[in-house]
């Protein structure tokens, strides 16, 4: 492709976007809104997933011992636990410590424990940390079968609920994004259809003097891609500010929530949105051009 040709394409695209100022603006806003929603869902889903993974890596197995076991038996169990593959750390919690922890948790309502008198219903236990989340599922039943162990369990429910929440967000987001993408496609191809219609005389003459289909197509494709690109730029801009503000809020109020940091996450999301915008723009133009090129 020669330089004059490229220059011609760029000039035509620019002229056309300007000539249809209002339609172009409307089109860019629609693309921007759709992509913004897509971006928000993406961030939400990535963060829920991240949260679930974080919690999963944090979980430990709680091993509760039978009341009847002696100090020696406790020592023996501790040693056995430590030798299991994948176990990183074993913290022993005696019956007295368990009671004290419970007292602390009750805070102001400590006196409730007075009802127990001198008896201590809390079992001795171990907190077992392992090196990977997969290990937990494998080790927990094994530990449960050890002698003198009452039960062994881990915070399975929370993690699994988070994972399924993340799945729902991703799935719901996907459906929503699909419809938004169809809508955006429709808007872009309609905008381009108007441009092509306004220039159908030109297109006919181009065909008569022997312009190739691709030569005729390029300025319109570029126009669609430009609209998609600009929409994606607007969407990314808003997404960046929204996520930035949200991170600030969360850090000051819910500091324990592990959020994905803005960089490099937003770079990836921005690039993703730009690609989607440009792709939808090109596709929309291509669709609306098919009919007009049959001269």
């Amino acid at each position: 492709m020669s330089f004059s040709t490229k220059e011609y394409f760029v000039r035509e695209t620019y002229k056309s976007v300007r000539r249809n100022g209002f339609m172009s603006a409307a089109c860019i806003s629609t693309v921007a809104v759709s992509l913004l929603i897509l971006g928000l869902f993406l961030l939400l889903s990535l963060n829920t997933n991240n949260l679930a993974q974080y919690l999963e890596s944090q979980v430990q197995i709680s091993v509760y011992m039978e009341d009847s076991c002696t100090a020696d038996e406790l020592k023996a169990t501790e040693a056995t636990l430590k030798k299991l593959p994948g176990v990183v750390k074993v913290t022993a919690i005696s019956r007295e410590e368990a009671k004290k922890r419970f007292e602390e948790r009750l805070g102001d309502q400590k006196q409730l424990l007075n009802a127990l008198g001198e008896s201590n219903p809390f079992p001795a236990s171990f907190d077992v940390q392992v090196d990977s989340p997969e290990r937990i599922k494998e080790l927990t039943p094994k530990i449960g079968e050890l002698a003198k162990v009452e039960t062994a369990k881990f915070g399975r429910e929370v993690v699994e609920q988070l994972f399924s929440l993340s799945r729902i967000i991703r799935f719901g987001g996907l459906i929503l994004v699909f419809f938004l993408a169809m809508g955006t496609l429709f808007i872009i191809s309609n905008t381009i259809r108007l441009t092509v219609f306004a220039r159908r005389k030109e297109v006919t003459i181009m065909k008569y003097v022997g312009a190739t289909d691709w030569f005729i197509r390029w300025p319109f494709l570029l126009e669609g891609m430009t609209l998609g690109f600009l929409g994606a730029v607007v969407a990314s801009f808003f997404l960046d500010s929204v996520y930035g503000a949200m991170l600030g809020r969360i850090h000051s109020t819910l500091a324990f929530l592990p959020m994905l940091p803005a960089t490099p996450l937003l770079y990836y999301v921005t690039v993703f949105l730009l690609l989607i915008g440009v792709g939808i723009g090109a596709l929309g133009s291509y669709i609306s051009l098919r009919k007009f090129l049959r001269v």
């Binding site: 004059s4 022997g210 005729i216």
Partner: peptide, 13 residues
């Protein structure tokens, strides 16, 4: 226009 659309170089046009 007829020359541009068949990709003739500028200087010839």
């Amino acid at each position: 226009f007829a020359m541009e659309v068949i990709e003739t170089p500028h200087r010839k046009i």
